[in-house]
Design a protein around this nucleic acid. Structure first.
Length: 459
RNA sequence: UCCUCGGUAGCUCAACGGUAGAGCGUUCGGCUGUUAACCGAAAUGUUGGGGGUUCGAAUCCCUCCCGAGGAGCCA
């Protein structure tokens, strides 16, 4: 069933857009659209359309790398095997031209994918001239200016396929556990957490803001549906200029009724373990192209070590870091903590002073809150942040006042406690940071098709 | 917003006070199993903009623009 050229997983059969021809047209080549289909047509005549990734030719034989769904397939054309007109097309075809190839599918060890097409016909559908991205190296500034074309390169395709696999795995994980997907709004009337800078826009004469988190909208939905999650883009107008920040990024946030802190830590751990295993299972080919050291990911198996913030400060001081109890972690502190082990580290119970207003105080020590951060190894930093939420209406009101937030804007949020209060917890995970960790990419800009970065929004 | 580094051919870079260079890409020629193919030849420049120092500036100085890396903040 599985063939090395399928490059994929043993999932359900994929939808075929081009069914095999009826017997009366057996002599005509079968149209194929993806590399996976090829292995089912060994020895048969096929036709495929795609783009020229690269071409190598001598006077009498040409090797054309044709990009189709799922990868690149080599077409081999001998001068005598095709018509004079087709050979002229092969001679003049350029990188990224669109072509139609007909020929016989053959297994051959010399072909990069193990399977190639022995050409019997070739046609240039659209001739490309002066394609900007050549097979040699380019700087990232140039590549980002041509992001719409850079997507065609194998590393970028692989990164985006890993992203797609991660997103599918997220949906599967929550679907299997009976969480309902709640799409939270992107246009919002006020700041969710009152901390980070928001993008402002005009809403028929009023101000509106692009959402920085769906969490507050998720909590009322948890009262309606019990276990819920949202998954969508979020926006931060912080003028952050680092490899770990984007202005627009995707976040997945579960919120579960009657889930308390210990259960939340278990959920976050199980979630990350599931996603890593899934990527290792189904994205091997992509990780190979990206030259990811998968042994690092194979070590990521729950349970993950858990330490409290107070213990973390102690460890940091022992390592010579001057952090004091009450200070938030910066990049240096995260890196020291996360590089202790080959698994993610869960840091819990932070001082209330630098955490969000809605976090539940620890009943054993009201100076700290029941929040958790999950720090990924290899310097990928915080990938998950979550907490148990305050469910006592009076305490929540006090916290809103202490943080100088406008109470009017939070009336609906307070209603969640007024009408049937319930303990609940949730976390948020940034997709790009997770995908960067999986792929081994050092910069978030390559983990999203069209990154939005400080002062840069083209293309 | 702050700090550091950079901007030379379509791309990646060299030349660092004295005639502007290479590789890749492009064009032309050669090659029947290439793997970023290879071999030979050719074309390609207001050295980011403006101002200054100098007999002479890609090179030194000022300024603006653009980019890269980092900090803070965070996911």
């Amino acid at each position: 069933m599985r063939s090395p050229t399928q490059g994929g997983h043993a999932g359900p059969p994929l939808l075929e857009y081009n069914p095999a021809p009826m017997s009366e047209s057996e002599s005509k080549p079968t149209p194929v659209t993806s590399i996976r289909e090829l292995s089912r047509h060994i020895g048969q005549s096929v036709e495929l359309r795609g783009w020229i990734d690269n071409k190598r030719s001598s006077g009498k034989i040409a090797f054309l790398q044709v990009r189709v769904t799922g990868g690149t397939v080599q077409a081999v054309a001998g001068r005598k095997d095709v018509s004079e007109k087709d050979w002229e097309d092969i001679e003049r075809v350029t990188q990224e031209s669109t072509v139609r190839v007909t020929g016989t599918v053959k297994e051959d060890k010399r072909a990069p994918s193990g399977v190639e097409i022995q050409c019997s016909g070739f046609e240039v559908l659209s001739l490309t001239q002066d394609y900007p991205i050549t097979p040699k190296e380019h700087g990232t500034a140039f590549l980002m200016e041509h992001r719409h074309l850079w997507l065609r390169s194998s590393r970028q395709r692989s990164a985006l396929r890993v992203r797609s696999e991660v997103e599918q795995a997220i949906r599967d994980f929550f679907y299997e556990r009976d969480l309902t997907l709640i799409d939270s709004p992107i246009l919002t009337p006020a700041a969710c957490e009152g901390t980070s800078t928001l993008f402002e826009t005009d809403y028929f004469g009023d101000k509106a803001y692009l959402s920085q988190s769906g969490q507050l909208y998720l909590e009322p939905a948890a009262a309606a549906l019990g276990k819920v999650y949202c998954f969508g883009p979020t926006f931060r107008a912080e003028k952050s200029k680092t490899r770990r920040h984007l202005m627009e990024f995707w976040m997945v946030e579960p919120e579960v009724a009657f889930l308390e802190f210990a259960g939340l830590c278990d959920l976050a751990q199980e979630f990350v373990g599931y996603l890593v295993a899934r990527v290792l299972d189904r994205s091997r080919e992509e990780l190979k192209i990206l030259e990811r050291d998968t042994s690092k990911l194979e070590a990521v198996v729950p349970p993950f070590p858990r330490i409290t913030y107070t213990e973390a400060v102690k460890i940091l001081n022992e390592k010579g870091n001057p952090i004091q109890w009450g200070d938030d972690f910066g990049g240096d502190e995260e890196t020291i903590l996360a590089s202790q082990l080959d698994r993610p580290v869960m840091v819990t119970k932070f001082p209330a002073s630098f955490k969000a207003f809605y976090m539940q105080p620890d009943p054993e020590n009201p100076d700290v809150v029941l929040g958790l951060d999950l720090l990924a190894p290899e310097g990928y930093g915080e990938i998950i942040g979550g907490s148990q939420r305050i469910h006592d209406p009076d305490l929540l009101l006090r916290r809103i006042q202490q943080h100088n937030l406008p109470i009017e804007a939070f009336q609906w949020y307070l209603d969640v406690r007024k009408y049937g209060a319930f303990p609940h917890s949730g976390f948020g995970m940034g997709i790009e940071r997770f995908v960067a960790w999986m792929t081994g990419l050092t910069h978030l800009r390559e983990t999203i098709p069209y990154p939005r970065m400080l002062y840069k929004i083209y293309p």
